[in-house]
Structures are given as C-alpha cells and as structure tokens.
Design a protein around this nucleic acid. Structure first.
Lengths: 109, 109
DNA sequence: TTGTATTATCGTAATATTGCGATAAATAAT
DNA sequence: ATTATTTATCGCAATATTACGATAATACAA
C-alpha cells in the first residue's frame, strides 16, 4: 500500500484534500503569498524569492498548477504565473463552510 | 534529501503548512467533517465511520492530534475525540487572511 | 549562427506517507 | 480470574514526496 484510497470518499472530500495537500508545504505557501502580495501575474522572479534550487521551485509550481491553484502561461522567453482566482473562490467557499461549523460549545473533553 | 527544509521559512508559514498538510488527506477531512457534524466529543465510533482498518484510522487521528486540530482524552475504556476549537479559530484567521487577498483583478494571463 | 537566459524534465538519493496484520496495553464485563 | 472491547504501537511493504545536479527545450540577443 502507500497510495491514498480516493475511491472511498466523496468527490468534494478528495478535491478539498488535494488542494490542501498542495498547500501543505511552506515553499508553496510562500509562493502563494508572494503571488497574492504582488497581486498580478509574475514572470520569472519566483525562483529568486525562494531558498531552493530552480528545478525544485519548478516542481512546486507544477504541483500548484496541477491542484489548479495557480495558472501558468508561456509569454515569450519566460512563464507568467498567477493565482487562479475562480478556483480560490471555490476553495474559499469550501473552507468557510467548514470553518463556520466550528463553534465553542458542546465539548466535554 | 526528501525532508522539507522548514528552517528557510517563517514560523507562520511552517505552522500553516503543517496544519494544511494534516488536512490534505480525504480520510482526515472525513474525520474532521464528522466531528464538526456531531458537534461534540466522540468516543469510539470513528473507526466505523471510515473505510479503513483500525490501525490506519488510529494513525490518522494521531496526525490530526499532532497538528493540534483535534484533542483526544482517555475516558475509561474508550478515547474521546473532539475539535480543538482554539486552534481552528487561529487556522480560520490565517486562512481568511490569505483568502481576503484573492481579488479578481490584475491578472493579464 | 552562436551564445544567453529562462523554464521544464530526467534521473536519483533520502526521507515521508499510507495502509494493514499482528500484537500490546488498558479498561470493562462476566 | 477470565474474557471481551477498545485504542495504540510495531513492523513491514508499497508508494509518494522532496530536493538537486545534469540536461533538454525554447525563445531572445548579438
């Protein structure tokens, strides 16, 4: 074994888990924070923002892309990365839906 | 290599990444959703909720506990699990802070 | 054409995760 | 005391992740 058994869960559970998994690494959090901070597409300065080698950064970017959290389009020599706003809106809904259920009461532990 | 280089990131980035990583598995999403649904501490029926063997569920619970997303206290024969409300409140703040920065504009991709 | 810059991919090593059977530990029930 | 019941831990195999050097692929510049 070793592979996650996605077939036993709902599509929503699997999708949310995939996105959160993609965000579950400090380098990828840092990438997202940077993209949100500059608030535009960024072409080429992401490697300089991180304390990692270029292939490693490229790999993290691909994972964020596969999780549909960012978009990346080729523009001439470099690649333009930016937040996938639609997907983040959807993720925001899933998360606030979860978080809204967190109340103070009812725990006897 | 293979281990995440946490020393290169801020404490906040590492903490957020750790919690999101803990949530980055559908079984653990399902556990959290169940705990939020019943809205109280749950003693003993979590294994029945999941399509996994008992040791596997126990392992997932431990990971959620290590990420401080749930609390577990021994009550006699069984163990009482519940949401760690304080920690979720903090996670909620981090996430809404991130999500609030997601706007529609400024992307030319 | 020949370099230069930028990003992606391949290959590989180290480590982590996932899942489960077997077993232990602890309390409850008989 | 003996037998369930419940949860945790150990050990293992399969797979995934993380990181990077080397190298390819592509577009720009000279």
């Amino acid at each position: 074994m070793g592979a996650t058994r996605t077939d036993h869960y709902t599509d929503k559970q699997n999708e949310l888990a995939l996105k959160l998994k993609a965000l579950g690494h400090p380098a990828r959090i840092a990438i997202i924070e940077h993209l949100l901070k500059v608030n535009t597409c960024v072409c080429g300065d992401i490697v300089q923002e991180l304390p990692l080698a270029q292939p490693t950064v490229s790999q993290h970017l691909r994972e964020l892309k596969e999780a549909k959290l960012i978009k990346g389009d080729i523009t001439g020599n470099s690649v333009c990365y930016c937040i996938d706003h639609a997907q983040w809106k959807q993720l925001g809904k899933s998360l606030t839906s979860l978080l809204s259920k967190v109340t103070d009461n009812a725990c006897k532990c």
